[in-house]
Every structure is written in C-alpha cells, then in structure tokens.
Write a protein that binds this DNA or RNA. Structure first.
Lengths: 197, 197, 197, 197
DNA sequence: CATGAATGAGAGTTCATTCAT
DNA sequence: CATGAATGAACTCTCATTCAT
C-alpha cells in the first residue's frame, strides 16, 4: 500500500473515532488517548494531522457538515421549481438525518453546544447556501413565506434533527409514512398561503 | 440574617453559577472551582449541598425544568378547549423561551447532550404531562393530528428552542409579529386538517 | 443527669469511636467526621476535649495502655516469687489480649505503626514497669535469663499480640489448652536453665 | 541507555521510594506526590506503572515478601533433616530481618495494619509454604510440637520482627550472641519435648 | 511519518479545623 | 458546653501535549 494511502487511512480512522466517541460521551468527556486507541494510532500521531484537540473537532465538524450538505444538494439543480427543489432537498436531508445517524448525531451535538469555535460554525453554515438561495428565489416568486431564514429553518429543517436524536435514543421509530407527513408539515409551515392559512 | 436563609442563598448562588457557566462553556468545560468562585463559596461548600458534580447538574436540570413547566402551565386549565389550551400553553412557552434565556439555554444544552443521567431526564420529561394529556384529548376529539407525540413536539414546540438559541447567538431578533407567525406555523403543523391537507 | 456526667459520657463515646474506627480502617483512613458521627457529637465538640486529631489518638493510646496494664498487674504483688508473679502477670495479659480484643487490637495497631508520637509511646511503656522490675529481680535471683528485656518481651509477651491479631482475623481460635501450652513456651524461653539448655 | 532499562529504573525508584516513605510515615501519611518526588518522577508517571495508590502498595508488598522468602529459602533443601532445615531457615530469616531493615520494616508495617488487601496478603503468605511444609514433616516425624502453625510462627519467627522494629527504633542492638540465644529460644519453643519440658 | 513514555497543570473530592450562633 | 456550616489546603488521579527515538 502506498505511504500516502496509509496516511489517509490514519486520518480517516481518527475522524471516525472522534465522531463515535463524541457521540457517546461528548467532547470534553472524550480524551485524546481514547480517540487514539480507537483509531489504532499513538496519541502523538494525532498531532501530526491536527494542531490540537480543538482543531481536531473543528475540522471534523466542518468536514462532516460538508458531507451532509454534499448529500443534501447532490441531485438538486437551480433549474428546478422552488417547490420541486425544496421537496428534493428536504427529502435528501431527511434521508441523511435518519440513516446516517453517526454523522447526524455528531452534527446535532456540535450545533447546540459551545464546542465548535465561531469560525468553524460559520464555515459549516456557508455550506447551506444553495438552500438559502432557493428560499430567496421562493420569496421573490411569492411561493415561500417572507420570514427570516432562521424561522424557515426552525420549522422546516430543524425538526428532523430532533426526531433523529429521539430515534437514536430509542424512544421513537420513524417510518416512511412519517416522513411524508413530516414533509407536509414542513412545507405547510413555510409555503406562502395565498388565500388564508 | 437567619442561618437557614444564608444556606438557601448559597445553594441558589450555586445553581445560578452552574447555569451561567454551563451555558457559556458546557458542562465538562466548567470546573467545580469556577462554579465555586462565581458563587462566592469554597469548592468544598458545593459538597454540602450536592453529592458531586454530576448530582449538581442533574438537580439543577430538574429544577430548571420544573420552573419552566410551572411557568408554561400556570394559567392553563383542563377545562379549556384543545385549541384554546394549546395556544395558551404555546405562548407561555414561547414567552419563557425567548425571555428567560438563561434557563432556556441551559435546558437546550442539557436536552441535546449526554450530560444528564437518564433518571433526571425522565423526571424532566414527566413535567410535560399536561401538554401530552392535552394532545391526547385533542386526538380523541379529532382536533389534533393522530401522530406521535414526538412529531407533535418536533414541529410545534421544539422550533422555539432553535430560535431561542439563534437569538442568543445574536443572529436573529424575534419580534411579537414573529411570535404570531410562529404560532400559526406550529398550530398548522399539528392540527387535524379535516377537508384538504 | 449531671452536666459533668454528660461530659464524661461524650468523651468516653469519642474514645470508643476512635478505637473502633482505627481498628477497622487505620488512623489515617479514619476522618474526624466519622469519629464524631459514631460518637453522636459534632466534629467541633472533639476540639473541646482534645487539641487535635493527633492529640486524640495519642491520649486514647496512653489511656488504653493504662487500662491494659492496670488489668495485667491488678492481682500482682511484689512479695510473690518471681515465677509465681510472672505466671500471674502473663496469664492476666493473655486473658486481656484474647478477650478485650477491641483494646488489644488498637494497641497492636499503634505499637507497630508511626501513628503515635514518641512521648506517648514512652508514657505507654512506662506502665510496664512492674514487669520490668520483676524481671530485674528474677535476673538477680538467677531465675530469669540475663538477656535484654526486649528479648524477654519478644519471646514471652509479644507472641500473644500476634496470636490475638490472628484470632481477630478469624484464621485461628485459641482455646484454654493453647494458653497453657503458650505459657509453658513463654516461661521456657525466659527462665534460667541451670543444668542443661 | 536503553528505553526498557530506563523504565525498569523508574519503577524500581518508585518501589524504593514507597518503602522508605511508608516506613517513616505510614501508608496514609504518604502522599503520591512525595513518592513521586523522592523517585524523581512526575506523579502522573506512577500511573504508568501502577493502577492506583492501593495497587502500588499491594504490588510492593508482594514483591518485597517474595524477596524476603527467596532469601529465607535460598539454601534450604527438603532433603535436610527437620532440625537442620529449621535452623538454616531461621538463621536466614534472622539475617534478613536484622540486616535488610528497609524491607523488613516495610513488611512489619503492612503485616499488622489494614493497608494491604486480602488477596495480596494471601499471595504474601503463600510464599511461606516451604516452612509450613517443613513443620508438617516435623510433626509427622515427632520432632515438632503438634500445635497450630500460627502458634509455631508466633513463638519461633514473629519475635524476630519485634526485635527488628526495636533495633530500628534504636533502643536495642542485637549481637551475634543474641542471635544464638534467640535461636535456642525459638527452637525450644517449638521442638517436641519427648520426656519433660 | 510514527511512536510510547513522560509530564505539568489542573480536575473532582475530602478533611482537619474554625467560628458564629 | 455544643454545634453545624463553612473552608483552605491537600489529596488522588486524568489528560492534552511533547519529545527522544
């Protein structure tokens, strides 16, 4: 195996180990030594790939966020109608959140806790641009409610994170039919109601 | 000042210090020594009131949750109609989440991270019973969508937590008009749509 | 009950608690707070009767040693022959060591560990004077081997401490017949052998 | 110097430091920090070699006990007669106790205090097997008194520990002639007296 | 590039002692 | 006399980070 490949493998193993351990214990309850052990490398090796523990988790966060958004927007094209585009993106997001639980749980952990530094948080948000652009277009076309993007996000996207966490805790099992219901709830909550609500 | 009062004051100061520091740094990045310093007591004093650090944060969590739900259900009566009752509870919750940010932020931190032990988490959830009872009644009366309580919560209540966190981060300012819009979105997402979806 | 009596009771309770706890856990693993709890007094009360923890254990040691030697020499009179006197003292000591295990165990703990300060240790030893006087007389009369008092003690008295500790650990049960055998061994090991060794 | 050798040196230094400090202050009055300082390592380094403080003292105890018994039985062979064998073992033990005072004092401390856990205590005792076997043979051959091994130990071996402690305290100096006397006392106290004592 | 041994700094916790009551 | 609340100091142990190899 090429030397470069071995390097990539080690870095990947570290990223995976970080995600798993932070998911189970939280950032501060996850010592570097455990990450190293789970990734089958020496603690010192971590410092060849990352500046320090904070840098490690920041980088993992941004990378996982990128994986998430790549998946979300993979099949989306700006030529679609707003409603088509939103449904497609929403369902890809739902698909990711409910199936790629390792990554989703990690993002949920980091999104709501003062673990990640502000720069990395912004980097993560920037990946959502296609969705924000879509909403912008939707507002212009009179299809989407003219309310803050945060409100749109709060009602249409964020509930999926909550449901994912609950499913992960084992108190809830989400079926295909739930997804459809949830999508309707999401779309209803952001679409412009021309006549009355 | 009476001895008893001084004791209560110390315990209160500790609870307040815990909330503030966990809000800013997270549980594991909040050493006992800092909590003690902020509360103007010796580290050893904490152990007069709590068994250990974990017990401290568990107890603070349950108590803050109780304060939250007491506020939420203060003016609610089971004799109200389902819609009346829901609007009243929802708006009290929104009021609390957006104004009592110290407490709300703390609850949001704890709800999404493996900080709180399972028993305390259950104790916290149990306080929500009046809302679950209301939803149960609403489903029986055909007023509320017959979907999992978790879905109802995800779409009608949880978004408020997200908005509170965003407002706290300074990226969003929520006005009275937003609240009304948000309430409509919440109610739309859980009410039974008799004729069309 | 008279005030003075209540005081004496508290002091006694403290002494008893100290003995029991030191027996079970050792001096340094016995916190003042536990002694207070077992004696049903406040930790602060201990400092009304003793200067500090070290003073407490020193005083308990000397007092228990006094109880021990009072018992040992109670029926002894310097008018007895050396052999009579030694047998009498030895058997009282054996009786005490094997029956008053609380006190004996405490003395054994303190005799072999750097818990007690030198002054208290000397005070304890001084109580053994009647036995040393008896040995002195025995040597003059040619009845007792002319060897160091420490050797006499090592072979005739000290084994009883070892046996008491073993009995206390439950690995050994000492019967009346053992006592007689042990006494013979003790006397044989110190008596002057006039004809052959 | 090889890495391995440096590791062994550090562990040895820790063991030595533990023995010295426990000898002077007792187990509970010997903080990890002092052990580390005396051994010229960081406190954290101790935890590379031992699980915790209790494990450290347990391991040191068993190892020192092994050194002691290795020395005691080094030149003994089960083909010797009982009396030959006993004299040889006894004198090696006396030699060790009175010259290797660091190790002997440590063992005496641990033997009489609730420092060592039961498993390690048993491990220590098991090393004495050759002596117990010798006594067993002696009893069968009618050479050794048919009394409990604990009694045999109390009268023939244990006095040496007492004498060692006294010599260490500086109140007694043991000469070669004392040793011979002591040996006679020891042998007299356990040998079977065929005619009369 | 990779490591395991080593560590200083700091974590949570305990405890002998004090003092206002 | 007696107390319980309070604490500073010190304890055991952990961990992010470094460095010789």
């Amino acid at each position: 195996m090429a030397k470069l490949q071995k390097s990539i493998d080690k870095r990947d193993a570290l990223v995976r180990a970080t995600i798993d351990l932070v998911n189970n214990n939280g950032f501060h309850a996850t010592p570097i030594s455990k990450i190293a052990k789970l990734a089958n490398v020496s603690p010192a090796t971590i410092y060849l790939y990352f500046d320090n523990k904070q840098d490690l988790v920041n980088k993992v966060y941004v990378e996982v966020k990128a994986v998430f958004t790549d998946y979300a927007f993979k099949t989306y094209s700006p030529t679609m109608t707003v409603e088509e585009g939103f449904e497609l993106i929403w369902k890809r997001i739902a698909d990711f959140k409910l199936n790629q639980t390792r990554e989703s749980l990690f993002l949920a952990q980091c999104d709501n806790a003062p673990i990640i530094d502000e720069a990395s948080r912004q980097a993560g948000i920037s990946h959502l641009k296609p969705l924000l652009d879509l909403w912008h277009r939707g507002k212009e076309e009179g299809v989407i409610n003219e309310i803050s993007d945060y409100l749109l996000y709060a009602y249409s996207i964020n509930p999926l994170s909550f449901l994912m966490v609950m499913q992960q805790r084992g108190v809830l099992k989400i079926e295909a039919s739930d997804i459809e219901q949830a999508y309707q709830a999401a779309w209803n909550s952001i679409k412009k109601c021309t006549n009355n609500g």
